[in-house]
């Protein structure tokens, strides 16, 4: 069932991408293949694979319960929020928040998660930015440095 669904979605995607790939043309070129043939070849092979999946799906047993998929969705949302807030809020704050919320999601107690979140935000900033020289954004905390 899931194989069929995946195959169908992938087939459509391949078709869509093939339409885009058809437009890849070099105005002039010394190479006989051009930029179009290779992606089209890959898409054709993948489309064949998708058809196989639609025609001969395997049985997948492990379904996600509603509760589980909700948690997975929540986790993705937290990650997205973390990524989007990374620059505006700065590493320390966004990390503290994200670590605390993710901790809660993975079954930690609220107070413990809050503490570990703050610790990670501060300590990892010191580790990466100051000790290992990986530049990280400070965001709203920039004023502290000045």
């Amino acid at each position: 069932m899931y194989d069929r669904l995946f195959g169908a979605v992938w087939l459509l995607l391949c078709a869509g991408l093939a339409v885009i790939a058809w437009g890849f043309q070099a105005p002039f070129s010394y190479d006989p293949v051009g930029p179009r043939a290779y992606p089209l070849l890959l898409l054709a092979l993948m489309a064949a694979g998708s058809l196989w999946l639609i025609l001969r799906p395997s049985h997948l047993e492990h379904l996600l319960s509603r509760h589980q998929s909700l948690r997975a969705l929540l986790c993705v949302l937290v990650l997205l929020a973390y990524a989007l807030l990374f620059e505006p809020l700065g590493f320390v704050l966004s990390t503290a928040l994200a670590a605390a919320v993710l901790g809660l999601l993975f079954g930690g107690r609220p107070l413990a998660c809050a503490i570990s979140g703050v610790l990670m935000g501060v300590l990892l900033y010191v580790l990466f930015d100051l000790l290992l020289d990986v530049p990280l954004p400070l965001g709203v905390l920039t004023f502290l440095v000045e």
């Binding site: 990650l79 973390y82 990524a83 990374f86 590493f91 990390t95 994200a98 670590a99 605390a100 993710l102 901790g103 809660l104 993975f106 079954g107 930690g108 413990a112 998660c113 570990s116 979140g117 990670m120 990892l124 990466f128 990986v134 530049p135 990280l136 954004p137």
Partner: peptide, 22 residues
């Protein structure tokens, strides 16, 4: 426990990706 491990993995991953292009 996972509630320490998972955030730590995520943070290190994010920093790793951010380090490439910022």
């Amino acid at each position: 426990p996972n509630w320490v491990l998972v955030p730590a993995i995520i943070i290190v991953s994010l920093v790793g990706v951010y380090a490439v292009h910022s």
